[in-house]
C-alpha cells in the first residue's frame, strides 16, 4: 500500500485550499474488501454514501491550521492559556472543537522542558485539532523508539534539545490525547494573533520540532 511511497512534501492542500487528491489504489484484495463492506453497510441502511462523502469533506477541511490558531491564542491571551493548560476540553470549545469522547491534555514547552507526543499502542492523536496523523506517527519506528530514545528521534527531525533541558514523552491512549503548546519564538512581539498562527507547524504541536526564531 501507499504508506511507504516517497512523498517529499508536507503539504496536504493546494494553494487555493483544496485538498490534494491522492487516487493511488491499494492491492485488489484490499479494495475489494473495502468496497464490499461499504456497499453492504449502505445496502443495510447503516450508513449512506452521502454521509461518507460529507465525512471525507469534513476531514479534508480539518488540519493543523486549527491547532495553530489555538496555540497563537494561548500566546496572546494569558487567561485562555491557563484554561487550555488546565481544562483543554473546555478551552477548545471556543474554537468549536468538541473533543468528546476523548479528553485533551495540553503540555507546555518552557526553557526547562520540551514535550513530545507518541501513541505506542496504536495511533491516538488529537484528530479534532490536527487532522489525520502523519504516516511516521503511525509507524513502528516512531512508536517503538519515542519512549526510550526521544532525543535520537528528535535529531532525526533535525531538532536538537540542549542537554540541560528535560525531554518529557507523553504516551497517548484511546481516552486521552495530548497537544504540545510550543514556545513563542523570540522576536515575535510585534506580530498579531493571526500572524503568529502562521508560524505554528503541525510538527511543533506534536513536539518533534521547535518553531525557529
Amino acid at each position: 500500500m501507499n504508506e511507504n511511497t516517497h512523498d517529499h512534501t508536507h503539504a496536504t492542500h493546494t494553494h487555493d485550499g483544496k485538498p490534494i487528491q491522492n487516487d493511488d489504489r491499494p492491492p485488489i484484495e484490499a479494495e475489494t474488501l473495502e468496497t464490499a463492506v461499504r456497499e453492504l453497510l449502505i445496502d443495510k441502511g447503516v450508513i449512506s454514501a452521502e454521509e461518507i462523502h460529507r465525512e471525507i469533506e469534513m476531514k479534508d477541511g480539518k488540519g493543523p491550521e486549527l491547532g495553530a490558531k489555538i496555540v497563537a491564542r494561548a500566546w496572546v491571551d494569558e487567561e485562555f492559556k491557563t484554561r487550555l493548560l488546565t481544562d483543554g476540553d473546555s478551552a477548545v470549545l471556543d474554537f468549536g472543537i468538541d473533543m468528546r469522547p476523548t479528553e485533551l491534555c495540553v503540555v507546555e514547552n518552557t526553557d526547562e522542558v520540551h514535550n513530545m507526543v507518541v501513541c505506542t499502542l496504536c495511533s491516538c492523536y488529537p484528530r479534532a485539532i490536527l487532522g489525520i496523523p502523519p504516516a511516521w506517527y503511525k509507524r513502528r519506528d516512531y512508536r517503538a523508539r519515542a519512549v526510550r530514545e526521544p532525543r535520537s528521534i528528535l535529531s532525526e527531525f533535525g531538532t536538537v534539545i540542549p542537554e540541560h533541558k528535560q525531554v518529557r514523552v507523553h504516551d497517548s491512549n484511546a481516552d486521552l490525547r495530548y497537544l504540545v503548546l510550543p514556545q513563542r519564538p523570540a522576536g515575535t512581539e510585534n506580530l498579531n494573533e493571526e500572524e503568529l498562527a502562521e508560524l505554528v507547524s503541525r510538527d511543533s504541536m506534536i513536539g518533534v520540532s521547535d518553531i525557529p526564531s
Binding site: 517529499h8 491522492n22 484490499a30 471525507i56 504516516a135 519506528d141
Partner: peptide, 13 residues
C-alpha cells in the same frame, strides 16, 4: 524515522 520519506498524503481509499 525519516520525516520526509514517511510523510504521506492519505489516498482516497
Amino acid at each position: 524515522v525519516d520525516p520526509e520519506l514517511h510523510e504521506h498524503i492519505p489516498t482516497h481509499w
